[in-house]
Amino acid sequence: MTDIDVSAPGIGADPSRRRYELEETGFKEVPKKWRKFYRHWGGPLDTLAPNEVICPVCKVVIRATRELRPGDKVYCMPCMSRMVVVVAESGRLEAEVIF
């Protein structure tokens, strides 16, 4: 484990985080069982929820079942990227690709 990794089940299983019920939003670019974890980004005016970050590679919104925190590891299945959640200069949560 590196310092940018968290144990994988941490996000969904952490009861101290606010939980979000995910529903499909019309994003169909992954198999059905994974679809609710992703949605199309609506552009700069699209406000992200605390359980969402934008994939910097393909601009899809990545969603989790609980609020995201810096250091969380998330996957973008539509573009096959692995990333870590960080706090940007703006104070917003962003995702950085890790290889």
Binding site: G12, K28, K33, F37
Partner: peptide
Amino acid sequence: SVVDEFDPHALAEQDFLDEVHSFQFWFDS
């Protein structure tokens, strides 16, 4: 705690890579 049966972010890295590179993933996508 309630954990989804299918949560992509809970996959180990190799399991994630096996999934997204697979023909089945492509076909279902």
